[in-house]
């Protein structure tokens, strides 16, 4: 019989095992078993069942997935859960006062100012605004707020009310 030499057909390499990962989310330590390629966004939504954080683009282009890591705003879609075992993660679910249930002032201001239509971008907008105020680089001026909130797109175009809501919180803080 004639044999023909063909290139070796390789099955994909076996997947590396999942690993135990501990994340501190909204003040609570939580254990997971996750593959290293799980993004922080997927860990929050699919494994921690915290679906407040939204997936818009999954590529760092919209800001819907904004969460706070050690108080700094970041895009959860472009970082891996396994990289944040020694950090504190805050999502939209963790902003309200856990004892009284009272909304964070920015959450209340977004409601009062009708700063959304469909609401899909809102958790990201609010977390981003919290991060922006933590950074302390923004003055209470609409153009500066717009620039420093430019990492959050709103498909519904609620921008004017979003800026109003943020300015109200900044006015109260003074």
């Amino acid at each position: 019989m004639l044999t023909e030499t063909l290139p070796v057909a390789n099955a994909p390499d076996a997947l590396p095992a999942t690993r135990p990962i501990e994340l501190t989310i909204n003040g609570k330590k939580r254990q997971f078993r996750l593959a290293p390629w799980t993004t922080l966004l997927d860990a929050l939504r699919e494994y921690a069942n915290l679906t407040g954080t939204k997936k818009g683009c999954d590529h760092g282009q919209c800001g819907a997935c904004t969460v706070l890591i050690d108080g700094k705003r970041v895009n959860a879609c472009l970082t891996l859960a396994v990289m944040h075992e020694d950090h504190t993660i805050t999502t939209i679910e963790g902003l309200a006062d856990s004892a009284t249930g009272q909304f964070h002032p920015l959450q209340q201001a977004f409601i009062d100012h009708d700063a959304f239509q469909c609401g899909y971008c809102t958790p990201g907008q609010i977390c981003s605004a919290v991060g922006m105020l933590n950074e302390g680089k923004v003055e209470n001026k609409a153009d500066q707020i717009r620039e420093l909130m430019s990492g959050n797109l709103c498909r519904c175009g609620a921008y004017p009310h979003i800026v109003d809501a943020i300015q109200e919180v900044m006015n109260k803080d003074r």
Binding site: G60, L148, G151
Partner: peptide
Amino acid sequence: GASPQLRNM
């Protein structure tokens, strides 16, 4: 460059 969130990472 980029956005505040991206510059933070």
